[in-house]
Design a protein around this nucleic acid. Structure first.
Lengths: 187, 187
DNA sequence: GTCTATACGTCGATAGAC
DNA sequence: GTCTATCGACGTATAGAC
């Protein structure tokens, strides 16, 4: 009569909370996910959630760790890198990295969340790209590439544009990739 | 005849609420601004805020109307339009349009807010740019231009990158403008 | 040391008296 | 129409049971 999941008896309560939070935040975002709902799904008391993670926001950030094989993209040849970046972003939409970015940006009303995003962008995108770029103002141009990626993610998934999400990925990669390549090559 | 109310110094209560909300939302964003704080600044009862505008969210959206002379930028010549767009965005940061976009994106955890942003982007950016673009896939390319603009706004002000905000505006306009121009020109 | 029960303060929103 | 009183839900804190 109750098809919801049973208690994960093989795990410690803290891990059960972390897993429940990961699922619920990923499914419904930050605001729509309550501490009591997380506790219910984990099969624990709501107070335990705060006791183990300090606050709802801290738990949110812990489940929203940005990591991905983006570095591999950047270690490839400079030629065609723009298009490869776009393809990677398009694929990451259904993967782990895309949705995480989406929920983080949507919850960026908090300064703590913004700092989290800032650090992740710096480590994941700006730093590796900056290393690879040649010519003047490599750091500046790397940040503008990151801005282009952020814009694509925003328009595709944060505030989705239906016509863009339905567009042919190959055309997107070709057109937007060329624009990114323009900054990679540096005029 | 209906002479003015007892409150000669202020406008009608509804307008006082609207003005107070506009100031507070612009200064502190959506989450950090409470209904009671708005009512206090407007000098009215908190219940009036909801009664006049339905909800905090509806009042927020009413104060966050996106409008600007962006259309003038797009009516100019196609040549150099990319750079002009970037300059306009950079200037709008201290103006009315920039902060509004920032607070809307930061509050985009709500589907109602997302719809608001989607409509504004469509009317303000995509539609005018799409009209001006030549060649195939004008609509798609216009949306990718909008994506680049969104990325610039995001990286400059939604989740500010200190090194970008401190960068020379002329260099930003030249580099990022060229990338936008790449899509405007269409390969 | 973990976990539970309970409660506190605040939030957006509502009902009903003047 | 405007205020008083209050609602239910939220995130969070704490005392104390196992």
């Amino acid at each position: 009569m109750d098809p919801t999941k049973t208690n994960e008896r093989s795990k410690t309560p803290k891990e059960a909370i972390r897993q429940a939070a990961t699922e619920l935040f990923a499914a419904s975002g930050y605001a729509a996910t309550g501490v009591r709902a997380i506790a219910a799904q984990a099969g624990v008391d709501p107070a335990l959630v705060i006791r183990h993670f300090g606050s709802k926001e801290a738990l949110f950030l812990e489940t929203m760790r940005l990591e991905g094989p983006f570095l591999q993209i950047v270690t490839g040849p400079l030629d065609g890198m723009g298009e490869r970046i776009v393809r990677y972003v398009l694929e990451s939409g259904s993967e782990s990295m895309g949705p995480i970015f989406v929920h983080l940006l949507r919850a960026s009303d908090s300064e703590v969340v913004r700092a989290h995003v800032r650090n992740a962008v710096e480590d994941l995108y700006v730093e590796p790209v900056s290393r690879r770029l040649e010519g003047d103002e490599a750091s500046l141009r790397a940040r503008l590439v990151a801005a282009q990626i952020a814009g694509l993610i925003t328009t595709l998934w944060v505030v989705p544009d239906p016509e863009l999400t339905a567009a042919n990925p190959g055309r997107l990669a070709r057109i937007y990739g060329a624009a990114i390549q323009n900054i990679i090559d540096g005029r």
